[in-house]
Computed example of a mutant assay.
Amino acid sequence: MLTRPFTPLRIGLLGAGRVASQLGPALVAAGHSVAFVWNRNHDRASALAAELPGAQVLGDVASPLPPADVYLLAVPDAAVAPLLAATSWPEGALVAHLAGALPLSVFDAQPAVRGGVFYPLQTFSPGRAIDWPAVPLCIEASGIAAETTLLDLAGSLSQRVLRLDSAQRLKLHVAAVFANNFTNHLLGIADALLAEARLPAELLAPLVRETVDKALANPPFAVQTGPAVRRDAPTLAAHAAALAAHPAWQALYAQLTASIQAQL
């Protein structure tokens, strides 16, 4: 986090979903103010604004927006370009999206604004507290002044602030999907298989923790274990047979086995 004084900023928050619901209170806790919250669902915008002292609920983005130092677009990737086009931005407004895979060039069609990226590398779920100082915040901007403002904003929240261009951020986002979304999906499959066998899901907890700890402490390919690495054909065949009732999972098992063996 910033070790030097910073100027508190007024934030316009467009979006009231998972990210905005975590980010809004974090910005306020860091000393900033949220000028307004907008969301297509007015009730969700109102609920979030109620948690943010002084925040207005904005009903229409086609009317001139209230003043803000930074406007943050906490909306789905596919909604960013339409929202940019539909909003009446103040001339020279600093507008940043929070998307991992969306390039800075999405702002090219809006020359009246200064575009930027404020991408938090984290998964957001209701009821889960976020340790913001540990969250990498990835910044990109169309100019030095815009970049400086976003870097200062990021530094007020996190100890891990990075300048990344769009190509780097895209690779990071793909890596994050493998590490988070795909891993979570595989854990879901494991949970379902245990449920079929009437076994408690917590049986896997020590194994999962050791796997993650080991992978974070070493190059993951170097510490791979299991029947694929051993080329244990009888076990691989037994596992395939055990998955006969789930052909999609059976095919996924075979694909992952082949991918592991290709790295040997």
Rank of each mutant, 00 (worst) to 15 (best):
M1T: 14
M1R: 15
L2C: 06
T3C: 05
F6G: 06
F6A: 12
F6I: 13
P8H: 08
L9S: 09
L13E: 00
L14V: 12
G15L: 00
R18K: 15
R18G: 11
V19K: 00
S21Q: 12
S21T: 12
P25K: 06
L27C: 03
V28F: 04
A29I: 05
A35D: 09
V37E: 13
S46Y: 03
S46T: 15
L48A: 06
A49P: 12
E51A: 14
L52D: 10
G54Q: 06
Q56A: 14
V57Y: 01
L58E: 02
A62Y: 02
P64C: 09
P64S: 10
P66L: 10
P66H: 09
P66T: 07
A68Q: 01
Y71T: 01
Y71L: 01
V80L: 00
V80W: 01
T87G: 04
W89P: 07
E91L: 14
G100A: 06
P103R: 06
V106M: 07
F107R: 00
F118D: 02
F118Y: 11
F124L: 08
F124N: 04
P126F: 05
G127E: 13
R128D: 09
I130N: 10
A134T: 15
A134F: 08
V135D: 07
E140C: 05
A141K: 07
G143E: 12
E147D: 09
T148F: 12
T149W: 06
L153K: 12
S158T: 07
S158F: 03
R160C: 07
R160Q: 13
V161W: 02
V161I: 09
Q168F: 03
K171I: 14
L172M: 13
V174D: 04
A175Y: 11
F178E: 08
F178R: 01
A190V: 05
D191S: 15
A192R: 15
L194F: 10
L203R: 15
A205K: 15
P206Q: 09
L207T: 11
E210I: 00
T211R: 02
D213H: 09
A215W: 02
A215F: 01
A217H: 06
A217V: 05
P219V: 12
P220A: 04
F221E: 13
V223D: 00
V223C: 04
Q224K: 01
T225H: 08
D232W: 00
P234K: 06
L236H: 06
A241I: 06
A241E: 13
A242C: 05
A245L: 12
P247V: 01
A248C: 02
Y253T: 09
Q255W: 10
T257C: 13
S259Q: 14
Q261I: 00
L264V: 13
L264F: 09
